[in-house]
Design a protein around this nucleic acid. Structure first.
Lengths: 223, 223
DNA sequence: AGTAACTTGCTGGTCAACAAGCAAGTGCCA
DNA sequence: TGGCACTTGCTTGTTGACCAGCAAGTTACT
């Protein structure tokens, strides 16, 4: 193993460093505002190295996204296995899953911002492969565990989308919408409080889905 | 009135046209990817006119945002007045308000994308004045109408944030997350179905808030 | 009324800055 | 010697800011 200090040639290391730096910069500043020079500098390589390894800026971006989605799919798979192995009642499993997902997203600001930016960059792009399989796995898990309708746009899918929305939105808008409506998210205790609210909302919503004959006095909107 | 066709000088008209074009382009493509030349072309004026009226690109962007927030505040005010005038029970009022807000956002793709992009552009920016007053008005309305705790980060604020999240998220991720979890939002009927789900979820959640002693078997997360 | 002085709305040329991509290097190791 | 892992120089294109200029009013003054 001939290596002097740290400045040896190590393509795998360089590649990973570039990927890490690009993920951070793309997430924080967006695609257009990030230059390959910046990525190189943040990765500790020269201006041209990102291009050398990934061909073009667009391909680097794609590689960053792919790696992110793969991580999510792994997490969904692990969470599902754990939920199926546990012997708790469905409600408790759902509560645990929502709580875990809430924490999972909160711990990955880069990921959220990347996906969010991607959704904004021309909404006409369909979900990428990894994203789709992660979603399908989560849908299968939730419908099987809770005995809900797993048809397209059915109860399980709607509930899953709501869970994602509730665990997601406040992370993007923590500095804007949340304080505007009087929700603070600065301290860990604030986040915990938000989490309890979200879990509670989902559980009560689930009860509503299980008893669909309940009297919901949905007044027709005036339009 | 010496004017031949339509090419007369009209600063108010030019200003508004530039603002309209900039709103559309900033919402669709983002700040960086939009050039002042494009804005000028879309507004039917020359390349230099946006800069002439607004000084700099950043100031044009600020002006666009300010106009948007003002519109929202007007809408919140009107909705609140209508809700207070109606003589329906609180649950029906809430259902109507959520339904209206759902439709309000769905009808304003520019607005949503602008706010979303703003939240991503350096999360360190606090809510702008108009945004804050709109949020405070909505909070006051919801806590008064439903008799909920209106303290900072209290029940009313949490519920309001959840309502916004639920009415908002699917519009940003209609092409990505939603199809990945099996929710279609292509047809108006799909949107209607989503709306019913959201309204139902909020109403059941409200019942949970009103009976806080309910047995919520929130299993502690395994971490 | 007429005209000269001035302001305002708007245009298009120019320029410095910077980015992406390519190609020609440079040094290291097998 | 050859190929791999980079770096550096350069080209080309784009963008925002600035500026000079012009034409359509508008005001002031005779």
């Amino acid at each position: 193993m001939p290596l002097t200090i740290d400045r040896e040639r190590n393509p795998a290391r360089s590649r990973a460093a570039i990927l890490d730096a690009a993920e951070k910069l793309f997430a924080e500043k967006g695609y257009d505002a990030t230059s390959l020079s910046e990525v190189g500098a943040a990765a500790g390589v020269s201006r041209g190295t990102p291009g050398y390894f990934f061909g073009s800026k667009q391909e680097l971006y794609d590689a960053v996204l792919e790696r992110c989605f793969e991580e999510v799919r792994q997490a969904v798979r692990a969470g599902r296995a754990r939920a199926m192995a546990s012997q708790q009642p469905p409600e408790a499993i759902l509560a645990g899953a929502v709580s875990d997902y809430f924490d999972f997203l909160a711990a990955r600001p880069n990921f959220i911002r990347l996906i969010e930016r991607r959704a904004l960059r021309e909404g006409g792009t369909s979900p990428v492969g990894e994203q789709l399989s992660a979603g399908q796995e989560a849908l299968a898990a939730i419908s099987a565990e809770l005995g809900l309708d797993d048809a397209p746009s059915g109860d399980a899918a709607q509930l899953l989308l709501s869970i994602i929305a509730l665990c997601w939105f406040h992370l993007i808008h923590a500095q804007t919408v949340a304080p505007a409506v009087g929700v603070s998210l600065e301290e860990p205790a604030d986040l915990e409080r938000r989490k309890r609210h979200v879990v509670g909302l989902v559980l009560y919503g689930l009860r509503g889905l299980e008893r669909p004959a309940a009297t919901l006095t949905t007044a027709p909107a005036h339009d």
